[in-house]
Each structure stands twice: as C-alpha cells, then as structure tokens.
C-alpha cells in the first residue's frame, strides 16, 4: 500500500472531521444570519412540491442506510438471525429504491434550477459547487452499489465498515481498505469531500432540523435580558465596555 493510500485512509477522515466540526462552530458563531435553507419556493412551487420531498425523504433514508451499514457490525445482525444474503438483498432493494427517489428528486430539482429564470438567477457559485459534489456522491454511490450487486454483492461490512469504525476509535486501520473496489473508493473520497463542504454551503441547514418544535409551547415569549440592550447579544468582538 502506497503512502498516498495510507494518507487517504488515515488523514482524510480526520481532516474532514476537523473541517466539519470547525466549520459548524465557525458558522454558528459568525454566520447565524446566513444559516438558512434559502428556499426558492416563492419563485416556483409546482415542481418543487414533488421534487423536494422526493429528494429529501430519499436522502434521509439513504443516510439511515449508511448509518446502519457502517456502524452496525456483522456480528450484531447475525445475532439477530439476519443472514448475509438476506441482509444483502434488503440493503440492495431498499437502498436502491431510496437511491432512485433521491436521484429522481435531485434530477428534477436541478432541471428546475436550470430552467426557471428566477431560481437560476438566485443560484450562487457556492450552490453550483455543492450541486456538483452532491450529485457526484449520489451517482458514484449508486454506481458502486449496482455494479457489485451480483451474487452476495460486495461485502463492505468486512472492509469499509470496520475501517470507518477504527477511525472513530482513533486507531485508523487503513489496511482494511486494501482491495476495496475502485468504485467504492471513489465514492468514499467524494463522500468525505461532501461532508467537509457541508458547513460552508447551504447544506448547513441539515443541522437545524427543527425537532425541538415537537416539544416547545406554541407561543414563544422573549424578554429583554437584563444587561442586554439589543434584542440579541452583541456580536463577537463588539461587546460593550463593562
């Protein structure tokens, strides 16, 4: 295994995590105002009404699939009595269905973004970069899965999943990645790139999923805090003289 390989499978995950966590902290501290979905529904809602839920529900399911596939070890599912073949077919069918919904959704969204004048005009360079990486991640993922679908399929739970778990236990075992098919490798690299990009693009909105809405009272009251003059606390670096 070359130095490049070992760098890729040891350094890259940590760099990504630093970029992700650091980016979220930075964004929260300095760009709360920019932290939004930047919805374009006001411009066009006919296509969005179909495409957006299709894509979002699809990608949420895909995310769930990734979490199960990568963080639930073989031994746990076998203990539950799920055979390798059954697991493979389950992941293949549900994963492919969710993947197809995601691909259809994002295709429609990109079509809408390109053809609808106001929506296209509201698209920034940052958005375009994000779309390229996001689409690449989805397509390479679908390719990797579908090109290794025959027989029992590629058993990433013996290679990729333990490697990823070893990253989180701070004992990166890059040897596990030896022999992983190229399609999977490309998908992993692009996937990490996407994760690193999240805090710096509009994808940040995934971290503001409003789960707390289920538990808070309907009407929110706020009061000016004592010692605070404005409606919100001072921006970092602009605190008043005590």
């Amino acid at each position: 295994m070359s130095i490049a390989d070992s760098l890729l499978w040891t350094a890259m995950p940590y760099v990504t995590i630093v970029l992700l966590v650091g980016g979220i902290v930075w964004r929260y501290r300095y760009d709360k105002f920019g932290w939004t979905t930047r919805s374009s529904q006001l411009y066009e809602s006919r296509l969005l009404r179909i495409a957006s839920p299709l894509f979002h529900y699809g990608i949420l399911f895909v995310l769930a699939g990734h979490l199960v596939g990568l963080f639930v070890p073989d031994s746990w599912t076998s203990a539950l009595g799920v055979s390798e073949t059954a697991y493979h077919y389950l992941s293949l069918t549900t994963g492919t269905l969710a993947g197809l919904a995601t691909v259809a959704g994002i295709a429609l969204l990109i079509y809408r973004r390109r053809t609808n004048g106001p929506v296209f005009l509201a698209t920034t360079r940052n958005d375009k970069l994000m779309y390229v990486v996001l689409l690449a991640a989805i397509l390479t993922g679908m390719t990797a899965k579908l090109t290794h679908a025959g027989g029992h399929g590629y058993d990433y739970r013996g290679t990729i999943a333990p490697w990823l778990r070893s990253v989180f236990t701070l004992t990166p075992d890059y040897a596990r990645m030896h022999g992983v098919p190229t399609a999977y490798r490309i998908h992993i690299v692009i996937g990490f790139l996407l994760i690193a990009l999240v805090p710096y693009t509009r994808l940040i909105h995934m971290f503001s999923a409003p789960v707390q809405y289920l538990f808070r009272p309907y009407i929110v009251y706020r009061s000016r805090e004592r010692g605070q003059l404005g409606t919100r606390s001072e921006r970092p670096g602009w605190e008043r003289v005590p």
Partner: peptide, 10 residues
C-alpha cells in the same frame, strides 16, 4: 415557526 425564531416580546 418550527425553529422558534418568532416570538412575542414580553
């Protein structure tokens, strides 16, 4: 408001 960003001032 799902985010709880809207409020009534006390």
């Amino acid at each position: 408001c799902p985010s709880g960003a809207m409020y009534k001032r006390q």
